[in-house]
């Protein structure tokens, strides 16, 4: 009985996602304003990034506050390969993803043994070390960063002077892939283990070794996807420097949508990004010009209020009714 409803639920999720992607793909037909398109691109990018983060942070419960490391690596590998070796960004993207995945495996081995806050601070600190090294690495542009000159529209080079549409569709593709990977993982052997460990800490003992390996795998997948997002960002903004792609602030930004939307859920990151990113952009654009920090107050208050009133994320708004019924 349970399995039947579960399978139904999963099929419903998949159909819902397909509908969303189809609807989103049509939006640019009606919305021509580049500024709004820009916000949509960022929203999709953060949805994808946060979804990638959610695999490790939500499902495995390994709260990483250092994902800027993978994001930055993806951005840097792509930009360096393109500007110094004329390697097309599509290959750079894959290279960045693979390098990040390897690094995630190497780091996962010692860090996954650490508990809660020790793990979180270790991830911050590792990302900070990478940030400082890039800031002092002259060959990689150091503080000057890497400026990617855009001269003409080209799909091969993934560069477009004015049009936001190619970036929009790539970001949509990225978010959809990250969602699909999560959807698939949820129902895999790994997904069952993770749930088992969460629901029943005693199960962790007996599953210890295999769960550790599955976490390593989750870390690598999460890093790979995050790096793809970083590569996309480098091409989208066409300029990167350590502050913009590797700072601690960025690690928080990657995890924030998942937390606000609903951590460890399939739809949380999407919902979180859809709320958070437009709010961030609009508060800055329309009240940030005052120079008095009103935008920060609004943005920060929103985070506090949501995390206090909806601890299970905004997604709780949708499933609340269902839960209430279940309780009764």
């Amino acid at each position: 009985m349970h399995d039947v409803t579960h399978a139904k639920q999963r099929r419903r999720d998949l159909i819902l996602a397909a509908v969303f992607v189809a609807l989103a793909a049509c939006v640019p037909l009606f919305v021509k304003d580049v500024y709004v398109q820009n916000i949509m691109v960022l929203t999709l990018m953060y949805a994808g990034l946060s979804q990638s983060w959610n695999i490790l942070g939500g499902y495995c419960g390994q709260i990483s506050l250092g994902h800027a490391l993978y994001f930055g690596l993806g951005a840097y590998v792509t930009a360096i390969l393109l500007t110094k070796f004329d390697v097309l960004p599509w290959f750079g993207m894959i290279a960045g993803g693979l390098i990040s995945a390897l690094i995630a495996l190497a780091l996962g081995y010692p860090t996954f043994r650490l508990g809660g806050h020790y793990f979180a601070i270790a991830t911050i600190v590792i990302a900070e070390i990478a940030y400082l090294l890039f800031l002092n690495w002259d060959w990689a542009g150091a503080a000057l960063g890497i400026d990617i000159m855009v001269r003409e529209d080209s799909w091969a080079k993934f560069q477009f002077t004015r049009s936001k549409l190619p970036y929009f569709y790539f970001a949509l593709f990225f978010a959809a892939v990250a969602w699909l990977v999560t959807w698939w993982l949820e129902n895999s052997k790994w997904g069952y283990w993770w749930r088992a460990v969460k629901d029943n800490p005693d199960a962790a003992e007996s599953l210890g070794v295999v769960v550790f390996k599955s976490k390593m795998g989750a870390g690598a997948i999460s890093a790979f996807l995050t790096a793809i997002g970083g590569a996309f960002y480098a091409m989208f903004v066409s300029y990167i420097d350590p502050d913009a792609v590797m700072s601690f602030q960025f690690s928080l930004l990657i995890s924030l949508p998942a937390v606000l939307g609903g951590i460890g859920t399939l739809w949380g990151p999407v919902l979180g990004a859809a709320v958070l990113i437009p709010v961030t952009e609009l508060t800055r654009s329309f009240i940030g010009g005052s120079g008095r920090g009103v935008d920060l107050i609004v943005y920060g208050s929103l985070i506090v209020i949501v995390s206090l009133t909806r601890p299970d994320g905004l997604l709780g708004l949708f499933s609340r009714k269902r839960k209430k019924e279940a309780v009764r």
């Binding site: 709260i63 920060l296 943005y299 985070i303 601890p311 299970d312 994320g313």
Partner: peptide
């Protein structure tokens, strides 16, 4: 919070940090 206590308090205080700065 019943769920995700760790994350909720991280982000509640993180949001507070932004508000205080503002």
């Amino acid at each position: 919070a019943k769920t995700n206590v760790g994350m909720v308090q991280i982000f509640a205080t993180f949001g507070l940090a932004i508000v205080l700065r503002g």
